[in-house]
């Protein structure tokens, strides 16, 4: 294998930074009944932001809807993200849009990756996946295997044909138990999880009733043994905007208009207000800026959901505005 070193070339006058917040759909494949995977890559061929198993991205779809999807590809490939998307009949324009409308070649906005479900070090792991909840667990089992941990996966679904990634899981042999409900009934969690033990971590992702059942079985296990991820609820914020917006700099008294193709960082810099930055990808946190008014459109990989909801700060190298106007403490 020969790997080629490729860099982002820029100068002080014209610093070039990869636009990590807009990616192109480069692949769309049906991998099970009602489940498809999307491959995403930089339109300019740049590296994507690094991630670890359990991470998700916020996809801003061309119809303005934002949805969170777990990354389920290969982190050793820095140029491609893969997400799995279940068609949800009751969904409101996210999954239906991805299945019906979104095409290879389309551009999508991307926030993150962020990780609320990290794989912590352990000698043993028990993974429980229900349906599309397999997506964050897929890179986890790969990693657990790579680290030589003792692990097993219990994977339930409605029917075998509806269960994604069975081919990729096949190589792990008996470590993976595939349990389609129409063949075997509900998951036997007590049998799979066994007696509580201190050297195990239990990871589960799936529908709410499955997580509740896992929590019940693990109720008497040592604290912090069980880690779960719920499917993200419907997006509460308004749709993102493509149109320019105004940024008012409270300390300087200047108002700057930020066009669609310019970052807030560059726009305020052009107005003579220097804000120190470093990675220009929403990763390092150097350009953190206090938000006094307005609703940010967060595209960073740093703030968790609560910190985002607080709306009191943003990373202006990548994040933008959902409101017509932002007031920043600059």
């Amino acid at each position: 294998m020969v790997h080629t070193l490729t860099g982002v070339v820029g100068t002080e006058a014209g610093a070039v930074s990869a636009d990590v917040a807009t990616l192109r759909v480069t692949g769309k494949r049906l991998v099970a009944e009602d489940v498809l995977t999307l491959d995403l890559a930089s339109p300019t061929g740049h590296r994507l932001r690094d991630w670890a198993p359990g991470a998700h991205v916020d996809l801003v779809l061309p119809n303005g809807v934002t949805r969170q999807y777990s990354l389920c590809g290969d982190r050793w490939d820095p140029f491609t993200y893969r997400v799995g998307v279940l068609r949800e009949p009751a969904g409101r324009g996210g999954s239906a849009y991805v299945h019906g409308e979104l095409d290879v070649g389309d551009l999508v906005g991307v926030g993150g990756p962020r990780n609320n479900f990290p794989l912590v070090p352990s000698e043993r792991y028990l993974f429980v996946a229900g349906g599309i909840g397999i997506t964050p667990l897929l890179p986890m089992v790969h990693q657990a295997d790579l680290l030589g941990a003792d692990w097993r996966l219990l994977y339930g679904g409605r029917r075998r044909a509806s269960m994604a990634f069975l081919d990729e899981l096949g190589r792990y042999g008996e470590r993976v138990q595939v349990v389609p409900q129409d063949e075997f009934g509900l998951l036997d969690l007590p049998a799979f999880l066994g007696a509580p033990r201190p050297d195990v971590k239990v990871y589960s992702c799936g529908p709410a009733p499955l997580l509740a059942a896992v929590e019940t079985v693990c109720a008497d296990w040592p604290p912090y043994t069980l880690r779960t991820e719920r499917f993200a609820g419907e997006e509460l914020t308004g749709p993102v905007r493509q149109a320019p917006f105004d940024v008012e700099l409270a300390r300087t008294g200047v108002t700057v208009t930020v066009p669609a193709d310019t970052t807030v960082l560059d726009a305020v810099g052009a107005a003579g207000v220097e804000v120190l930055s470093s990675c220009r990808q929403g990763i390092c946190g150097t350009c953190e800026t206090t938000v006094l008014a307005g609703e940010p459109d967060h595209r960073d990989a740093l703030l968790d959901d609560q910190e985002r909801a607080a709306g009191d700060c943003m990373f202006i190298c990548v994040s933008r505005a959902r409101s017509d106007r932002l007031v920043l403490d600059l």
Partner: peptide
């Protein structure tokens, strides 16, 4: 000067 992007602190993970 805008020193942003220097590699004095390294870069990446």
């Amino acid at each position: 000067r805008d020193p942003s992007g220097h590699v004095g602190f390294g870069m990446g993970i």
